[in-house]
């Protein structure tokens, strides 16, 4: 059975964010694009499942302006995925439209799967929505923030971390959609032979129309972007340790009024 991994290309964490002149989004000039860090856990888990005989092949899917986002697919292929699908789409699709398009792409590929894996969230918009929406469109159970996955033939047991260090153990009837958290595994680096091989692996291109999605599926748009207000300069507290501690406690109580 197949595993699909849905990945997203995002600006690298270290990238300095500048806004477009009309404040309608970020200025892409000079942005370094990488695979969303959480998606690396999803790709790694899929590869491990295949290596453990729990799946026959791993297909990675992404969505966005194809010339750019295909690079994220090449990274996943270099890690060891078998093949890839890119859905050519504009930048500004929201989670609803994205999930619908990804579900459409999976159905276009045959629809049979054991797992669909994603990252728990993408670090650009931090929505953490596509995985659950995708599960809804695929009529499969889902689990998010997953830090442990044990796959059987007909079901999977997962562990997820929630508030206050609480752990939940869920059993899902397969097929299922899983959103990976840090801690699930240690993503491998692409080897040089892996990178060479990835160049020859098939990447199928699909249009948004072919996967049954359109701009009409968008439910949420972002506008009027703003940079955060400049913070006033830090107030440094001098003196010996005892004096510093005393002054700080006093400032927090009397000036900042937070204690």
């Amino acid at each position: 059975m197949k595993i699909y991994v849905c990945i997203k290309q995002v600006p690298d964490t270290e990238t300095k964010i500048k806004l477009k002149a009309d404040n309608g989004g970020i200025d892409p000039t000079g942005v370094k694009w990488v695979m969303n860090p959480y998606d690396e856990f999803a790709v790694e888990e899929a590869l491990k499942l295949k290596e453990g005989g729990k799946a026959t092949s791993v297909t990675v899917i992404t969505l966005g302006p194809k010339a750019r986002v295909v690079e994220a697919l090449r990274t996943a292929l270099a890690m060891g995925a078998d093949d890839a699908v890119v859905v050519d789409a504009p930048e500004d699709l929201d989670p609803s439209a994205t999930a619908k398009a990804l579900a459409g792409a999976i159905k276009a590929e045959g629809g049979d799967f054991k797992f669909v894996l994603t990252g728990k969230l993408a670090i650009d918009d931090n929505a953490a929505s596509v995985s659950q929406m995708l599960a809804e469109y695929l009529q499969a159970p889902h689990a998010t923030v997953v830090s442990k996955l044990e796959a059987g033939d007909t079901n999977a047991t997962i562990e997820r971390e929630t508030e206050g260090g609480t752990r939940e153990v869920l059993q899902l009837t397969l097929p299922a959609v899983i959103a990976a958290n840090k801690g699930l595994n240690m993503p491998r680096y692409a080897s040089l032979p892996g990178i060479m091989k990835a160049k020859k692996k098939p990447v199928k291109e699909l249009t948004l129309e072919a996967v049954g999605a359109s701009a009409a599926d968008i439910r949420v748009k972002f506008k009027n972007y703003q940079l955060p207000p400049e913070k006033p300069a830090v107030k440094m507290i001098s003196g010996d340790s005892a004096a510093q501690a005393q002054t700080l406690a006093k400032l927090l109580r009397e000036e900042a009024k937070v204690i």
């Binding site: 650009d124 918009d125 439910r219 506008k223 009027n224 703003q226």
Partner: peptide, 17 residues
């Protein structure tokens, strides 16, 4: 809401919701 790990914020506009 914050976007890009708090490097900027954006206004949310709902459509067809």
């Amino acid at each position: 809401r914050p976007m890009y790990a708090g490097k900027c914020t954006a206004e949310v506009a709902f459509e067809n919701s």
